[in-house]
Simulated scan of single mutants.
Amino acid sequence: MIRVVVVDDQPLERTGYALILDSDDEIEVVGEAGNGSEALRVVGQTEPDVLLIDVRMPVMGGIEATRIIAAEHPGTRVIVLTTFNLDEYAFGSLQAGASAFLLKSTTPTALVDAVKTVARGSAVVSPGLTAKLIEHYLQSVPASRSLPENVAKVLGLLTSREVEVLTAIVGGLTNAEISSELRIAQSTVKSYVNSIFAKLGLRDRVHAVILGYEIGLDPGRRG
């Protein structure tokens, strides 16, 4: 069973999410909270697999709570929900450690699928957001953060092949596409990806993209 905690300051919405998730045979809602501060307590008590949390709440918002939970409870994956498709919320939540950013207008089926996907260790982002994320970093990361020494400091932890795989990930390639481009088995690509994430402390591919653009890694220079 995938154990989930639901956090939203609106009782009706919170109950609705819980009912949707509990209706699936693979998911169990083990706790609820009305703000980020309460979420910290409930997560500490229940250690869920997935936390579903609203962005805008009193006392403590979803992004701040996500940052704390990602640091203190790395085994809990976070899905951030919001009514507003604002870049600042999306980027803020992903940088804080969330594995998914979804609009509240998403369908019940998509919500259930998102919970199952992040529980398996993957990331989920609303369509088009990954492209926005890349565009955002291309336009806003200061030139000083793209200095060669910043790249070397991070990439020095990786083998040359792992650097190639990371660069391909930053360029938006799937494991299958990386396998084809580098002419290695998909199982080998998966092993490289897991090694990269472990060495760099990355939670998933979205955060690999964030890191890549923060250090000025150029996905156009593969091979």
Results as ranks from 00 to 15, higher is better:
38 E>A: 12
20 I>Y: 01
93 S>Y: 02
187 S>E: 15
164 E>A: 13
207 H>D: 09
137 Y>H: 14
177 E>Q: 14
151 V>I: 15
198 A>N: 09
28 E>W: 06
30 V>D: 11
190 K>L: 11
66 T>N: 02
157 L>C: 11
32 E>V: 10
30 V>L: 15
134 I>K: 09
68 I>E: 11
200 L>V: 15
169 I>L: 11
94 L>G: 04
98 A>S: 07
200 L>P: 12
140 S>I: 13
9 D>I: 04
76 T>W: 00
65 A>N: 04
96 A>K: 02
39 A>W: 01
161 R>D: 14
79 I>M: 01
2 I>G: 04
140 S>T: 15
90 A>L: 11
139 Q>V: 14
57 M>L: 09
125 V>W: 00
146 S>P: 14
36 G>R: 09
177 E>W: 10
135 E>Q: 14
99 S>N: 06
116 K>M: 07
59 V>R: 10
153 K>Q: 12
46 T>P: 09
211 L>V: 06
46 T>S: 15
80 V>I: 13
5 V>P: 03
150 N>A: 10
217 L>W: 11
196 I>W: 02
18 A>N: 09
194 N>C: 08
168 A>S: 15
106 T>E: 05
166 L>F: 08
66 T>D: 00
117 T>R: 12
73 H>G: 07
27 I>T: 07
155 L>H: 11
217 L>M: 13
38 E>S: 05
12 L>N: 05
114 A>V: 00
135 E>A: 13
